[in-house]
Amino acid sequence: MLKYLLRKLVLVLPLLIGVITLIFILIELSPGDVADKFFTPETTPEVREKIVAKYGLDKPAWFRYLLLLKNLAVLDFGTSIAHGEAVTTLIGEALPNTLILSVVTLLIIYPVGVALGTIQGVKHGTVVDSGASIVSLFFYSMPSFWLALMLQLYFTLKWELLPTSGMHDPVMYEFMSTPEKIQDSLLHIILPGVAMGVASAAGAARYMRSSVLEVIRQDFVRTARAKGLPERQVVSKHVIRNAMLPIVTLLGLSLPFLFSGSVLIETIFAWPGMGRLIVSAIFSQDTPVVIGCFFVFTLVVVTGNLLADIAYALVDPRIKYD
């Protein structure tokens, strides 16, 4: 197992270099550069040259690429050109916010998806199954940004149940007691969490359903029933446990999806996370920030895969990595 993980970790390095190279090439190929942000009709050409030189943009691309790799080798991500702040500071501010949102989303996806899928599998062929299939297909195929806007429209404007956007109350937060602050933060995370999680929960439900259907036909389930176990126990002890195996893999693999989904959701819900950081960095061609964000994204994807591998081995004793 350890050997396997180490081998996987060694493979991360070429993957990171590949991602960074690709991103660098894409930024280079797109016209204009970040220095454009500073230019107005009043900017004289001399100042423009100075600004360009100041950010090293006058150097040839290969030189900047090698410099970038050299800096990344010592984990120096540089300074954002657009914000004038260390890239690590910006990521340090944004990453926890996205992680919180992802964790909450996962908490929505899995219990809901697993429960729904199990019910569907057990009640296979009934009205409940078809009804749930239609509902999950509906949410599965719905664009998350549209769902987000609809949630805002109904839950905040029409029914006034939840706050619309942001991480906490913009006016009263600092005057709240700690329990009130926690409550306020929880209320603020519900809508973005649901908007991000619902489609994946619907997906998880569909996986779970087919997994349950497969397990429920197996001999050991028939044996369990034959020895007179109540149906409830058959499902909870024998079916769900075995049907969960593919879902665990899904857990690790959904982490990168959550991160990429955050790009839209964070913008709509004014959530200051990685998604918003990377969008603004791409638009302003702020290379250090873009590279830094993709570096983190790549690590998240790799970590998600590794977690899936480990979790799989843990829940299924038949799996061994050599």
Binding site: L149, Q152, T156, L157, G166, I268, F269
Partner: peptide, 22 residues
């Protein structure tokens, strides 16, 4: 007492916040 500048990048979200009075 205070002036609070809230960062809300999306137009539709700003509009809902405005209509809600937040």
């Amino acid at each position: 007492n205070r002036v609070i500048l809230r960062v809300i990048p999306e137009y539709a979200t700003r509009l809902i916040e405005l209509e809600k009075g937040t």
